[in-house]
Nucleic acid binder design. Structure first.
Lengths: 106, 106
DNA sequence: ATTGTATATCGTAAATATACGATTAAATAT
DNA sequence: ATATTTAATCGTATATTTACGATATACAAT
């Protein structure tokens, strides 16, 4: 009697759900915005700009990374996070297809 | 030391996060698709088409309803769910603005 | 009035998410 | 070599989500 029967749905819907989940916390939306604005950004500055602890921000970054929406490259003692454009585009396209498919009627 | 400090973020990011959360389970994406295809649909048919129990589907419908993405009207002994277009458009627009704001760089 | 049908809600168990302090790891700088 | 800095991970507490059986509710039909 396991939980989260996500495997029973289509790949497209699973992917959409995973991306949506990645965006389902305002901190993560804010992080994406922030990274985009600077086009690249270290984690430290993010922590300074968010009302969350370093540990928590790091956790949110991990979620975004696992969803493929950002990537982080080592740069000396810090990590330079930036948006991973290919996945972001993929997500945007999937959403647009969903809306397109949904909207015609009515 | 409460949890989920969502109130510390902007209204826009909170809204986006709430909508994303509503889409963060494949069953709910599938429900939206299904409702859109028929433009209106009773819950019973949804249950028949989803690998989930009636109680669980009803719960997912509640989440979508609370996010404003669907509405349900009483129709005899059943409830006729359908997509709530104004909110769906609002969400689509908010997402497009986010992508637009994010994409310019790089 | 009783029965049947459709859907919501309740109760509950398990999984996942959120948050943070403390610690660790890894590179830089001294 | 040692100290400093930056970010990840660990441990832990609490909250929320997911799932379902059982029950309640509300209307329709008989």
């Amino acid at each position: 009697m396991a939980f989260s029967k996500t495997e029973a749905f289509t790949d497209v819907d699973q992917k959409l759900a995973l991306w949506a989940k990645a965006l389902s916390h305002p901190a993560r939306v804010a992080i994406l915005r922030e990274l985009a604005q600077r086009n690249a950004c270290i984690c430290g500055e993010l922590v300074a700009n968010l009302p969350l602890s370093q540990a928590t921000v790091s956790q949110h970054l991990k979620v975004l990374k696992e969803a493929g929406l950002i990537s982080g490259e080592i740069d000396g003692p810090r990590i330079c996070y930036c948006i991973h454009w290919p996945t972001l585009e993929e997500m945007e396209n999937a959403l647009n297809r969903l809306f397109k498919q949904i909207k015609p009627c009515c």
